[in-house]
Design a protein around this nucleic acid. Structure first.
Lengths: 242, 242
DNA sequence: ACAGTGATTTTGACTACTCAAAAATACAAG
DNA sequence: CTTGTATTTTTGAGTAGTCAAAATCACTGT
């Protein structure tokens, strides 16, 4: 009895949701889970109780959910399939990075271990997908690095985009137009708390402004090594780092 | 409301089942449908009534099912996805032809039109899959050629294997070992009605015997053009014809 | 013409997942 | 404390698909 697509989606969304929680918190509120999954709140409650019964999540009524070790392992394999598929669709099938999410969303539940291993091998055991999200290892190990965002990183430094945490095609195309794909370099010129905006200078030396919401979706690497390693001059079509 | 995987499977199986019917018959008995799908007979009845309600099949109680025009179109797109995926897994992913069926069985329900078109293009709009089964066109057109089998073709002629109608990996590997993949040439030396067997000579000049059941699964092209076009001498790893 | 056999349909029930709406709970603010 | 609000849980119900077993039908052979 392999886990159903539904179960896989719940676990994946709990994992992702917990990751988005404010520092310190570890329990994902049911409401957030329900809306991430696009189901009614009551539905999530029912399902989560069942998942808790199977030992995949810890559930504290009125407080929220969190994955158990077993649940984390399963969520990781789903994420691994999803992200390998996304990268495969971009690198091998030549699809654009903004159009692969929906396909991956479906394929993640049906690709066999054999096929996913072939894909992994064909891509050279990549570490991140086209959005910079880390690809979990074969045995369910996830190495999440901590990144600043364009909203929190020091002003005046050159940083390397590491990860774009939004799958909306419109946003992704915007990011691409401004040279903000993972691996690309950008300078933070100024930040205006009141205006809720960040002033940036791209690799092409043009400056532009991002609102706080958008800026917070761009995770960046502020270490000097990253800046040094990054495509130095005209970095227009940066690929995710290996 | 796109058709569910279940509906797609029923339609696909009705199409394939009707194709296996003895000459003249056009209605697939419920029992055959049920066992092809691995469900209880009553389940098939219930489902088929619903499909009839949606105008996808014609259902004659106690006689059987047949696809309507709409049902045929849908079955064709499922078959198209299945067969393109199978060929893709062999040609691009380097999987063996005997191990792609199960993956294709799942993938056929989730690959998007965009992705399947990319696959089709990448493969150069192929006409047949690795087993020689025809790949329906984008608009649901299926051009089924009629073939003899090793059980019905004239004795003493060189024929070209066109299609292998069994997905069992064990059988497929057997077929491969004896040089009977689609595109490969074989000579029918003799046929013994009583012993229920066929004597064959492969491209490597070795002779071997096939039982009637196995022989009837190998569809062959008996036209002289086919024999002429086929890989002339050492045809060991024949690919399906384009 | 009719009993027997095998295929088919019907029936009743079950699982997995879902929703809407009512009830319960937590919590912040007075 | 107590009240108001937002969140969560409970309840009752519905859909899609499934099964086992009983009832029904079709057809063969006598």
């Amino acid at each position: 009895m392999p886990p159903s697509s539904t179960v896989e989606n719940y676990l994946k969304e709990v994992y992702l949701g917990v990751g988005r929680l404010p520092a310190g918190a570890t329990l994902l509120p049911m409401g957030q889970l329900a809306s991430a999954l696009g189901v009614a709140p009551g539905t999530a409650t029912t399902m989560v109780k069942a998942l808790a019964e199977s030992g995949l999540v810890d559930y504290e009524p009125y407080n929220g959910v969190r994955l158990t070790a077993a649940g984390t392992r399963l969520a990781a394999t789903v994420l691994r399939r999803h992200r390998l598929v996304e990268l495969f669709l971009v690198q091998v099938m030549g699809m654009r990075w903004d159009e692969v999410h929906d396909d991956a969303e479906h394929l993640e539940h049906v690709v066999s271990d054999r096929l996913i291993d072939r894909i992994d091998e064909m891509l050279g055991h990549p570490e991140t997908d086209p959005h910079g999200d880390p690809i979990p290892g074969k045995e369910g190990t996830i190495r999440e690095r901590h990144f600043e965002t364009l909203l929190t990183c020091p002003v005046g430094t050159r940083v390397v985009v590491a990860r774009v945490s939004d799958q909306d095609p419109v946003f992704l195309r915007f990011v691409e137009r401004h040279g903000l794909k993972p691996g690309q370099v950008v300078s933070v010129e100024a930040r205006d708390e009141v205006a809720d905006a960040v002033q940036l200078r791209g690799a092409d030396d043009a400056t532009f402004t991002l609102g706080a919401r958008a800026a917070s979706k761009l995770l960046v690497d502020v270490t000097p090594e990253a800046a040094a390693a990054a495509t130095p001059s005209s970095a227009r079509d940066a690929a995710p780092r290996r």
